[in-house]
Nucleic acid binder design. Sequence first.
DNA 1: ATGTCGAGCAAAGCTCGA
Length: 257
Amino acid sequence: MKIATFNVNGINGRLVRLLEWLEEARPDVACLQETKTQDANFPHAALKDAGYGAIWSGQKSYNGVAILARGREPMEVRRGLPGDPDDLHARYLEAMVDGVLVASLYLPNGNPQPGPKFDYKLAWFARLHAHARHLLEQRVPAVLAGDYNVVPTDQDIYNPASWLDDALLQPESRAAYRDLLAQGWIDAIRDRHPEDFTIYTFWDYLRNRWPRNAGLRIDHLLLSPDLRARLVDAGVDRDVRGREKASDHAPAWVVLR
DNA sequence: ATGTCGAGCAAAGCTCGA
């Protein structure tokens, strides 16, 4: 069972690229972020034609998440992260697929920091901690996949020097990510590639960052502890970032036995 | 500060968020 996460940066603007990748990579489940469209304009018919059932949670212009499942319909179990009824951002969706609970999450970017956007990021992280702990208590196999907007360590970026003031590298952001791992969640890519410090999932459009491989690892798949024994592979479809009209993110994935 | 995208608004370049 292959589960992927991909920040598409506009699902309608990238639809050709998304369909191309689905056909090549053939994930059983694909968690998408930054669909950037309201629900009425989500391209579910094109995805269905490509063989994927889908659930989606969007809003106009910003954010938006979805879960695709090959050859079946994802069974939605949660829409929105609990803990703040006033938070209307479309950033969290959960489904059951083949006995695995899969979440597609888009954690707030948090820039500029300090400020209200960074406060929102940390508050969202705190809500994620509470919910993630709840999921572990349920003892259901679970994968929390998405754009976490956190570079976990200095080994997960080409060079931290020009990002030191960025919300993605702040000690508070990193501590929040570490706290998830401390609950027992497994960072699948790092688990499978403990010594490879050139794995990235995001390359900014600015400043020639793709051609010089100036990337960051910010898209993560966190596995519940019971899935460790089923983890057989994990990786990043790096070449996707180099194509025409590419998203600034590349898909990351795991294969579970 | 730089400079690159998608999307919205509205009809061409601007603004916003990333």
